[in-house]
Design a protein around this nucleic acid. Structure first.
Lengths: 162, 162
DNA sequence: ATAATAGTTGACTATTTTAGTTGGTTAAGT
DNA sequence: ACTTAACCAACTAAAATAGTCAACTATTAT
C-alpha cells in the first residue's frame, strides 16, 4: 500500500463525485475546476478508476461520471489501489528465496504493517468520510470549536486487535 | 502523511536496528547488506533520523548506530515523518482562504483521513511489530499455516471511534 | 602517534513518478 | 449537423526517489 499525492487526487476526486453526482453525472471539467486538478491528469486517473469499475462514464451532452456503486460500498484502499499500481516491496522475490532468514525478517515485518494499513483503509468508505464530516460540522457549530475537531481517534484497541 | 518506498526503507532499517543493536551498535554497512539498501542512501536517511533524534551515531571502530530510545517508544509515524518531509495537501494554503466552501470540502475530508492514518501509525511501535511477529511465528509453527497469518485486523470500531 | 574504522557532509547523476499538454477520436444528445 | 464530453495516445516538464562519488572528521585500538 502506497500513499502518494496521486492517490490523494483520486480520493479527493471520488469524494467530489460522491458529493455532486447525486442526481446528475458530473463532468471532469467541473471536478478539475473545483479541486484544482488538471483536466488531463484527471482523465488519466479516471481511466484507471473506470477500468477498476469504480466509476461509469456517460458520453455526450449532459454526460459525465457517476459512481458505479453506492458510496457506502466504496472504500479508500480500493480507490488508491486502482490508480497506484502496487510495488513488490520484497527484494527477495516475494516468496522468501532469501538465504539468510534474518534478512527477510524486516521485509516481512513491513509487509505485515502494509497489510494492516490496507485493511484499515479498506474499512473506511466514502460515505463514512462524508457522514463523519457532517457530524463534525454540526459539532463545530455547536461548541464553536474552530480547530482540532478531528483529533479524537485514539487507537488503544490496536494491541489487543493484533 | 505520505507512505512511499523512502519511508519503507526507513522503517525497515529501524526495524533492523531494533533487532541487532541489543548489545552492540550496528553499522550502516551491515544494514545495507542485510536489507539490500545502498549504503549512501542509508546515510541520507540516517542523517535525517539522527536530526529527529531517533538514532545515535557512535564513531570509531566498533561504532555504528543505536536507537535513541527504547523500541517501545518509537512509533512508525515518527519514523516516516523524519525522512519524508510533509506536503501541504491543501491547495488553499491550509487555513481555508478558499472562496467556495465546497471546493475546500474534499480537501478537508482528505486532511481528516490523513490525520486518521497518522494517528493509526502513531499507535504502532517497533516493539509491537517485532513482538507481534514473534507471536505469529509461533502460531505459524503450531498449525502449519503458511499464509494469511497476519490477516486478522478488522476495524469495526472505526465508525464509533470517529 | 598512527592507522583503521565509521560517521558526516555535500555535490552530483540516473531513473522513475507525477503532473500536465496537445491533439486527436468516438458516442450521445439537441 | 453540431455540440458536448468521454475516451485515447503520445509526448514533455518537473519533481522525487534512489544511488554514486569523494573528501573530511571524530573516535578508538594498537
Amino acid at each position: 500500500m502506497r500513499l502518494t499525492t496521486k492517490g490523494r487526487y483520486a480520493v479527493t476526486a471520488m469524494l467530489d463525485l460522491a458529493f455532486h453526482s447525486q442526481s446528475n453525472p458530473v463532468t471532469l471539467t467541473d471536478i478539475a475546476a473545483r479541486q484544482t486538478i488538471s483536466l488531463s491528469y484527471l482523465e488519466q486517473l479516471f481511466a484507471r478508476l473506470r477500468k477498476a469499475n469504480m466509476v461509469k462514464g456517460i458520453r455526450g451532452p449532459g454526460g459525465g461520471y457517476t459512481l458505479s456503486n453506492n458510496a457506502t460500498e466504496i472504500n479508500i484502499a480500493d480507490i488508491i489501489a486502482a490508480v497506484d499500481e502496487p510495488i513488490d516491496a520484497t527484494k527477495c522475490g516475494g516468496e522468501g528465496n532469501c538465504q539468510n532468514e534474518k534478512a527477510c525478517l524486516t521485509h516481512d515485518l513491513w509487509m505485515g504493517l502494509s497489510i494492516q494499513i490496507k485493511d484499515y483503509l479498506k474499512g473506511i468508505t466514502l460515505a463514512q468520510l462524508i457522514e463523519n464530516h457532517q457530524i463534525q460540522e454540526t459539532a463545530k457549530r455547536q461548541n464553536g470549536d474552530t480547530l482540532k475537531v478531528i483529533e479524537v481517534h485514539r487507537n488503544s484497541e490496536l494491541t489487543s486487535n493484533l
